[in-house]
Design a protein around this nucleic acid. Structure first.
Length: 293
DNA sequence: AACCAGGGAAGAT
DNA sequence: ATCTTCCATGGT
């Protein structure tokens, strides 16, 4: 339905799906344009290299989720809607996943956050940059640092900020990022990764069709990208369902809290806890993070 | 005022 | 191959 230069669509999906909890989590990142009262968010996407913004608003309930989607009229409406479905995991059967955890130690947490989907980052390249920037920083400072980065080098459209393009980032100097309080090392990582993309050595479209292992082998070679970054990228960049970042401090603290441990669990303990959570380890990770947020 | 943070590279065994 | 140190800065 077209009106006033907008495309407008109502969408109904299978429940359970708790969009209010989605907005709750998205609002942790100051770059996300979330409006809790109207139950909506503006989603910046790159469709066929074109910046597109979709306004997604929940109008349904947990068990009968409905959305109103608005966007600027263009040629890629179908692709934009497909991408939205992927980002918000509208086709993932949350009931089945929730059922899977009902007989595990995570049951109470899954009860508490029932209907929470794993929402993807809005763009794979942005996801990777965000992972690098967030490495070894507390969430609060990490968010101000990414916000500062995007506001300085990215671009704004219809009130939403886009991360800078690989070309823009590749052309930056370390000193420009140091001025934003990046460490020298972090600045080198970010610029270096953008250069790999510009040179064509890192292509996110082709990554989509590769296995986790193939992607790992390719990304681990790039300076600044380690296991934690790859696991996060596979989860939030590509939406893979079975990742568990054992080295993640947040996961460790969540497990410590869940099992009432005096110290953070060892690698072996974590491995043994997570037995039985497959093949949905990403959802275990997500709900563990939620449990300490 | 220490100590920690949703890590990873580089150097040392 | 595996262990240790350094990076850099804000938060608590």
């Amino acid at each position: 339905m077209l009106r006033d230069g907008l495309f407008l669509e109502t969408l109904q999906i299978k429940g359970p799906y708790n969009f209010d909890l989605v907005l709750d989590r998205l609002s942790m990142d100051p770059l996300n344009q979330v409006d809790i009262d109207s139950r909506s968010v503006k989603v910046p996407m790159l469709i066929e290299n074109e910046a597109v913004i979709a306004h997604v608003q929940a109008v349904g309930t947990l068990d009968n989720p409905k959305f109103i989607i608005k966007g600027t009229e263009g040629e890629n409406i179908v692709k934009a809607e497909k991408r939205l479905a992927e980002i918000f995991q509208w086709d993932v059967p949350l009931e089945i996943i929730s059922e899977h955890f009902r007989k595990t130690d995570l049951a109470p947490i899954f009860e508490q956050h029932y209907g929470t989907p794993l929402v993807l980052d809005f763009d794979p390249f942005s996801c990777l940059l965000k992972c690098i920037i967030h490495q070894q920083l507390n969430l609060s400072f990490a968010h101000t640092l990414t916000e500062r980065f995007v506001n300085t080098f990215g671009f704004e459209k219809e009130g939403v900020w886009f991360y800078p393009s690989p070309e823009t980032v590749a052309a930056l100097q370390v000193e420009e990022l140091r001025a934003l309080q990046f460490s020298g090392r972090k600045a080198e990582y970010v610029i270096g990764i953008a250069m790999e993309v510009v040179k064509g050595n890192l292509d996110f479209t082709s990554l989509r069709d590769q296995s986790n292992e193939e992607i790992y082998k390719q990304l681990i070679k790039i300076r600044g990208i380690g296991p934690w970054t790859i696991q996060n990228f596979l989860m939030f960049g590509l939406g893979r369902l079975n990742l568990f970042p054992v080295a993640d401090i947040g996961i460790q603290n969540a497990l410590k809290k869940l099992y009432k441990l005096d110290v953070k669990p060892t690698l072996e303990e974590i491995e043994s806890f997570s037995k039985g959570w497959e093949p949905y380890l990403s959802y275990a990770s997500l709900y563990l993070w939620r449990s300490i947020e």
